[in-house]
């Protein structure tokens, strides 16, 4: 669907490809005899393609399935159906033993740097753990040196190997987490809200670090966030998620400057205007109601319950993620139409 976006890079094979990925969690009742009373449809048919050296941003509000998608992509959860390919290798249905070699190629950066590091291990042990799991990567006597190089690479002093995580600040901890994820030299890094737990001043530093690492190592990122401006800064392509589905997918410029899906427009219009003089001079869309339960999502288009354009057709048919007649990028809406909600004009 987005073949033209990747071809510019002359990389025919995506490093990460998800096709029709579905993840349903059963909701069970009963103590002795468990019966399934429904499914949480956390991720429902997501297609993604990520090319080497590129960044794909995934945005959406809380509970739309972003984190589940991250876990699926790195193989921590098996998908209910669909396929996930890392460097062309299917990981969706691998056993925990068979998936181990693939783990070298795709790693996860966590949201909360305070819970993602074992408080009882020194930084050296944390960053060196990947080498103890994959013992054939680096011989034992060279591991200490490699750990120091990794710390240096993420901007920490190599002399800190003997310290414990609590002796570091949030930003430094996140750097340690990034160093651990990079230890096995993966090609893809899935960042699950990597900066949302940090102070704004530190967020910039970590984002810059990620950009520098991407340049140096040729990494591809899946960058999951709910902060639209952060994603705009780092992402080449953006996918907007709502209730487990991608509703709009395009380049950064297409999504931010020419949003076509009503949900994207509503999201973007909620971003504060930095210039106080221009406040109130921009169209603002305030959505009504809450996100419906993913256990029992609305029929047809999942956004229809909160959409001002919804008609009967929206309740009966599921809109596909299509470019449409006059469109520029794939949008899952029957009434997709560009609307300027990002530019405030006096």
């Amino acid at each position: 669907m987005n073949a033209e976006l990747g071809q510019a890079d002359a990389a025919p094979e995506p490093v990460l490809e998800a096709t029709g990925v579905v993840k349903h969690f059963p909701v069970q009742r009963g103590i002795v005899v468990k019966r399934t009373v429904g499914h949480v449809q956390a991720v429902d048919g997501v297609d993604l393609k990520l090319y080497a050296g590129k960044t794909l941003g995934v945005v959406g509000e809380s509970g739309c399935g972003k984190s589940t998608l991250a876990k699926l992509l790195v193989g921590l959860e098996p998908p209910t159906s669909g396929s996930i390919k890392v460097l062309g290798k299917e990981i969706g249905n691998l056993s925990s033993r068979r998936i181990r070699p693939v783990r070298r190629d795709i790693q996860l950066v966590f949201q909360d740097p305070y819970t993602s590091l074992n408080p009882r291990m020194t930084v050296g042990d944390i960053v060196g753990e990947p080498f103890e799991i994959h013992t054939d990567v680096i011989p034992r006597d060279k591991r200490a040196k490699e750990v120091k190089e990794l710390l240096d690479m993420v901007g920490l002093s190599p002399d800190h190997v003997n310290r414990y995580p609590h002796q570091f600040s949030g930003g430094q901890r996140q750097r340690i987490g990034i160093a651990r994820a990079l230890a096995l030299r993966p090609q893809v890094l899935v960042c699950d809200e990597p900066v949302s737990a940090l102070d704004v001043s530190i967020q910039g530093q970590v984002i810059n670090l990620l950009e520098r690492l991407q340049e140096e190592l040729g990494l591809a990122y899946v960058f999951i966030a709910h902060d639209l401006s952060v994603v705009r800064h780092i992402a080449d392509e953006v996918a907007v998620m709502y209730l487990g589905k991608v509703v709009e997918h395009g380049t950064s410029a297409e999504i931010y400057d020419h949003p076509r899906h009503p949900y994207t427009q509503a999201l973007l219009s909620a971003v504060p205007v930095p210039d106080p003089d221009l406040r109130g001079h921009r169209e603002e869309i305030v959505l009504q109601g809450d996100v419906p339960s993913p256990i029992n999502p609305p029929s047809g288009c999942r956004f229809r319950t909160r959409c001002w354009k919804a008609t009967e057709k929206c309740a009966e048919e599921v809109p596909g993620l299509d470019v449409g007649d006059k469109g520029t990028h794939p949008t899952a809406c029957f009434y997709a139409e560009e609307r300027d909600v990002t530019h405030a004009v006096k």
Partner: peptide, 12 residues
């Protein structure tokens, strides 16, 4: 906890 998930993600 996340650090256990991290270890699992590394293939532990």
């Amino acid at each position: 906890l996340d650090y256990v998930t991290a270890a699992r993600c590394l293939g532990a």
